[in-house]
Amino acid sequence: MTTDSAGPETSASRGVDKAAIVIAGLLAAVALVLVYDANQIPATTMYGMGPQVMPVVIAIGLGILALANLIDAVRGHLPARESADPVAVLLILAGLALLIAIIGFGGGFILATTALFVTTSAAFGRRAFVTDLIIGAVLTTVIYLAFDRLLTLSLPAGPLERLL
């Protein structure tokens, strides 16, 4: 509901939804992990309720929901999905991975966010890499200067930031 729901409702006729079955399976798996983890917690509480009770309660809830999702999946009670563009998604994820790597290796804010800017705009279909690179670099440099220098926010500094 935070986004527009995916397309027109043509679900009833589509039969079993494999992806939804995977979701139900994942929920059940999470429930099992919760129970397993709760069993690892030593029971130490003298009064009231221990730390292992709530995980079990939530696990039971997840188990029921896994079942409900499974029923929905088998009945095909799910809204139809439109085809997605995997390249765009992978491009943005690559951008995020680059950002994390650059920050992790001390490459600094400007390099990291410029990389994210360029990959994201490419994901949205832009092919003018050089233009976007320049726009991204200028934008992030201005952001860096405004927030780090003027507003004294602490943003990670790399080789580029030290030049400024």
Binding site: I100, F109, F117, T120, A122, G125, D132, G136, P156
Partner: peptide, 24 residues
């Protein structure tokens, strides 16, 4: 334009986390 809008949104969104807790 959409490409720049979302690129900018992502830059700002990650920037909040980078400024608050810059850990991998």
């Amino acid at each position: 334009p959409t490409p720049w809008l979302y690129a900018g949104i992502l830059v700002f969104a990650t920037m909040g986390t980078i400024a608050a807790k810059p850990s991998v």
